[in-house]
Design a protein around this nucleic acid. Sequence first.
DNA 1: TATGAATGAGTATTCATTCAT
DNA 2: GATGAATGAATACTCATTCAT
Lengths: 197, 197, 197, 197
Amino acid sequence: MNIELKKQKKKAALMQAAYTLFLKQGMETTSVGDITEAAGVAKGTFYLYFRDKQDIVTAVVVVVSRQILEEAYLKMCAVRTGDFAEDMTLLAGALLDFFEANKPLLGFIERGFRWPAFREKMNATGNAVWQSLRNDMRRHAQMCGKSEEELVRRVYCLVSMCGSVAYSSIIRGEPEDLAKLRPVICGIIRDSLRMME
Amino acid sequence: MNIELKKQKKKAALMQAAYTLFLKQGMETTSVGDITEAAGVAKGTFYLYFRDKQDIVTAVVVVVSRQILEEAYLKMCAVRTGDFAEDMTLLAGALLDFFEANKPLLGFIERGFRWPAFREKMNATGNAVWQSLRNDMRRHAQMCGKSEEELVRRVYCLVSMCGSVAYSSIIRGEPEDLAKLRPVICGIIRDSLRMME
Amino acid sequence: MNIELKKQKKKAALMQAAYTLFLKQGMETTSVGDITEAAGVAKGTFYLYFRDKQDIVTAVVVVVSRQILEEAYLKMCAVRTGDFAEDMTLLAGALLDFFEANKPLLGFIERGFRWPAFREKMNATGNAVWQSLRNDMRRHAQMCGKSEEELVRRVYCLVSMCGSVAYSSIIRGEPEDLAKLRPVICGIIRDSLRMME
Amino acid sequence: MNIELKKQKKKAALMQAAYTLFLKQGMETTSVGDITEAAGVAKGTFYLYFRDKQDIVTAVVVVVSRQILEEAYLKMCAVRTGDFAEDMTLLAGALLDFFEANKPLLGFIERGFRWPAFREKMNATGNAVWQSLRNDMRRHAQMCGKSEEELVRRVYCLVSMCGSVAYSSIIRGEPEDLAKLRPVICGIIRDSLRMME
DNA sequence: TATGAATGAGTATTCATTCAT
DNA sequence: GATGAATGAATACTCATTCAT
């Protein structure tokens, strides 16, 4: 137990070190050596906790993906209207704010979120944030007479869109400034959810 | 001018070779040497036509992005209904078909389309396909009383969504099978465009 | 004749370009392409005037070696005492001054002067500076009852020493600061020439 | 400590391999791969012991510089006269003999000795050869009423001169045969040290 | 568990030089 | 004479991973 705890701590330390480095210098240019050095362990130790480099990358992305979504959700909650379509639009706005404010992180998350986390958490019972989001969806689904599953999928696609457009716009400046695209994204989300009602 | 023509041919040959190899073995594992060998030129010649490896990758992605969109548009035209929202949904379906049928290409396009091509072509006058797509939009925009610009942006975001969801689903199987997500995507597109009317 | 003149001009332009680049970025990192670009001619043209890269390096070093020595000699003349040993010491001082003031040039001359120039010029009749230096030596040799040849050799060795010590000291800081070594060098020159008298 | 010893052995093996190759084919044309192959270790291992190629070059030059001087000093000792100026002249002769007999080594030492070794050894107490040379100087300095420091510097400059002239003469044949210059060098050394007395 | 020395595969890029025009 | 497109040899260095201790 104590020993198990220690292992968890070390694994967490490794991930924390990796996260910091990924943010600072990108994940491509961060070597396993960099990570272990920053974590204060020997190189070989890394392989006791992660199968390979990709393994830690995925682990970090999963954690960060969840955090981003949680943070955006909480921000949305602070200003929620009670109208689902409107609230999801606010959620998207919070996500875009976050991406804009964390350009390096967006570059590192790269290919969008990691969605296993999304579904797992969605079904998990332990986390208040996700419980709450799920309840929102369930309630709205019932109201619309749609299946909850379909609503979850729709929200997933819309969040994907946010990530994809934000990446192109912020990282590459394509096809134009995020400021121009933000209202379009919000419009799509609002319309697309309103239409379900 | 004969010489200029030769240079164009050589550049094209390099790009064609790169495209083939990227499809077969991925762009990460394709070396500059592989490309020049396949193109039948010396290694050094590569650098007369492209600044570095990334340069040719981008060039190929831009060309391929355009081709994909053109192909999907032509497929849609074959079954178009005349209703814009419905036609765009068909376009999305054609795109998803294409992605599903060209998994390696999807893996290589990776970061989604390259949108400068999109906008340039959109404004170009020489290409019938893009002229046609643009006319569709212009007509629809007028009908809805929206600006053409806004409509173009909306379509861009929706196509982005297609690419992003298709990538996650097809390449990583996240969060679920494309078959499950396809109707959701189509629904979003249809609703989101219908709502503008 | 006119055509011969043009060739000379082009060769000189190439050398001038090379000299400037060598000074700015070192001769190792200056490519033939850099030189021809700076000289405003095509790459192939270079090989009409120089056998290879080393050829132009040597040509430039020879010219620069001569210039350095001439410049130092003229400086010495301005303060000459008429005493040969003393004057040669002054010459060494002028050389060291020059090296100290032209660190990049010293780095590029690298392997010390190019002495064919020294001997050729010594025997040449056209150049007033070298005539003068030679006369100094001849006069002193007669005075000492030594052969002129031996005196020239002695001066050559002493100038070599100046270059060698200056290089180590200025470029690498070994074994100590030039300020500490300068009086030693001067002492050696003075003593060594005085001893001949 | 066993492991520390092994590391020392490996580093030494690398340097030995490098030295042999530098002598045989020059340092420019010796690749890191050549060195590791000759030393029987993997390429990557090289970089555990040396920062880069230049690092091992310097390391080898320092060691070899010391050896050359030691060897020449020992040769001189065998025929020493007890007269300092004369003995130093003999030392120079031994150095020139050595250079003449080891043309490839002279080519590789290139820019003359590496003098940090000189000074460190001069002050070290563990090495009999350098102790002896230093004692010679100390004794002579006292006899002349000069500071030991100044004498060391003078000897340094004179040895530099030997290296520089030998390099030009032996490697490039400039400005003439070493046979012609040898008596001149010896004369300068003798006179210059005699003058101090 | 932890270490860290050793490995060795893997590649983009430069540039002197040539030669057909 | 002049051009500049084409060549292709040549190499340092990184880093994920392993394994003996």
